[in-house]
């Protein structure tokens, strides 16, 4: 699977250089599509990881509302990183930092219930 990713990435880089020579703005689109293809190739790996998470949760008997935020945070992390790198590639760095900040806020919103349940368990211990 890794070699497929490397192959697609190299194709994208080469095509990008060729298109940049023609000074056409399709080079940016080639970047976007290469990123998409690389993720689509990785999709089944990510699916296995998420199934393993479910298996670990059943094994250790953790509460459901602790594991699902972890998976959501991974998803949010990936989407924000994907789009902020695209924004940075196309030249506007300030937009990239804004997207990353939005992702952080989304993760904080997700983390609040987990922190609350942690504090409740601590209080119940004391």
């Amino acid at each position: 699977m890794l070699f497929k990713i490397i192959g697609i990435g190299l194709c994208g880089v080469i095509i990008n250089l060729i298109l940049r020579e023609y000074k056409s703005d399709f080079a940016f689109f080639v970047n976007v599509v290469t990123g998409l293809l690389i993720f689509i190739v990785m999709l089944d790996g990510v699916k296995d990881v998420i199934n393993e998470f479910g298996y670990i949760r059943d094994l250790t008997g953790m509460k459901v509302d602790v594991v699902t935020p972890i998976i959501k945070v991974i998803g949010i992390g990936y989407i924000t990183e994907f789009s902020s790198n695209l924004a940075e590639d196309s030249g506007n760095k300030s937009l990239a930092t804004k997207i990353v900040m939005g992702g952080k806020i989304a993760i904080c919103v997700l983390a609040i219930p987990v922190i609350k349940s942690l504090i409740n368990t601590i209080i119940s211990l004391i």
Partner: peptide, 18 residues
């Protein structure tokens, strides 16, 4: 849904440039 999409976009790009 493979690598051919990259080449398709490259072809369109070069064609429009020419």
């Amino acid at each position: 849904m493979g690598v051919d999409i990259i080449f398709k976009i490259a072809a369109i790009g070069i064609l429009t440039a020419v």
